[in-house]
């Protein structure tokens, strides 16, 4: 075939340009760690990758939510456990006051101890978190569960501003939610059994030298059950959170494996390709220089 000088030049030149483009591409894949750099590289794979990246980003969010919810619930569990200790002591005092017949001094001491326990319970149930929000007020961030009564007795009443027990649900998985809220008014003052009203009555009885009445003891036992129930609900929720965390983690790992295969640079392959293109370019350059140096005109004097 007849070859023109222009064609020889042009073909070598476009070969070099092609090799340089391929080298730049391989280099970019190595530098960025990704083999999919634009949707046009592989529209189907990019679409899958985008979906999976979104899914992973969502899973990471669920894990954040789970960490947050677990922290909240563990804090509540600690406080409830302290309340349970105080209530247990109230029970013991109430039983002891009935055994210790007629000892007014002891009952007076019991009354003092009950006052301390009452303050403890008040402080525990009205605890605030790191944001200054009340822990046991459910959706009411700035309303304490219990407030001083304007016209005692009792001197502490459930906060009248808290009118609902709407839960605060946190998303921990696709369509899966866990409540992180508990209402102090619900477990310390539900129905007719208000722990602070009962304590006030008990203190008044003891101060008057009388034992704790059976009615109050029943109320305290009922509140203890309520607190236990709340504790076990929290335990269940924490278990669900742990389970969801595991599930999300497993899914995320599986996704990441697929993602990596679809999206990430295979370094061995990319480096081999870079080397190949490098060698090819070098060979083209050398042969170009040699061929271009060849001319019959060199021999005409």
């Amino acid at each position: 075939m007849r070859i023109s000088t222009q064609m020889m030049f042009q073909n070598s030149l476009s070969a070099m340009q092609r090799q340089q483009t391929a080298m730049a591409r391989a280099q970019e894949e190595i530098a960025s760690g990704r083999k999919l750099l634009s949707p046009e590289d592989d529209p189907v794979a990019v679409s899958t990758v985008n979906q999976m990246e979104k899914r992973n980003s969502k899973l990471t969010q669920y894990q954040r939510n789970i960490d947050f919810a677990t922290g909240k619930l563990q804090n509540q569990e600690g406080l409830l456990s302290n309340m349970q200790d105080r209530l247990q002591r109230v029970r013991e005092i109430s039983i002891a006051s009935n055994n210790d017949l007629g000892n007014a001094n002891t009952r007076k001491t019991f009354a003092d101890e009950l006052k301390g326990l009452r303050d403890d319970l008040k402080r525990l149930v009205n605890s605030t978190d790191e944001n200054g929000d009340f822990v046991f007020s459910g959706i009411y961030a700035k309303e304490s569960p219990f407030v001083p009564n304007g016209a005692p007795p009792p001197d502490t009443i459930p906060n009248p501003a808290i009118t609902t027990t709407t839960p605060v649900n946190v998303e921990i998985g696709e369509g899966e939610q866990v409540s992180v809220s508990n209402y102090g008014t619900a477990f310390l003052a539900s129905g007719g059994s208000d722990v602070f009203a009962a304590l006030d009555t008990m203190i008044a009885d003891l101060e008057a030298g009388n034992p704790v009445a059976a009615a109050q003891e029943t109320i305290i036992a009922g509140v203890q059950d309520q607190v236990s129930l709340t504790q076990s609900t929290i335990g269940n929720r924490i278990n669900r959170l742990d389970q969801a965390f595991e599930n999300n983690d497993t899914e995320g790992l599986a996704n990441t494996k697929v993602l990596s295969r679809l999206r990430d640079t295979d370094y061995a392959e990319a480096i081999t390709k870079l080397n190949q293109e490098y060698m090819a370019l070098q060979a083209t350059q050398q042969s170009f220089a040699k061929i271009q140096g060849l001319s019959l005109f060199n021999y005409i004097s």
Binding site: M1, R2, I3, S4, T5, Q6, M7, Q10, N11, S295, L296, F297, I300
Partner: peptide, 21 residues
């Protein structure tokens, strides 16, 4: 196609040198 055009119509310097001689 450009190559095909060059095959017929393109100038080859060696060829021209030979013709020149």
């Amino acid at each position: 196609l450009t190559d095909r055009r060059e095959t017929t119509a393109g100038v080859n310097l060696d060829e021209e040198a030979a013709n020149l001689l």
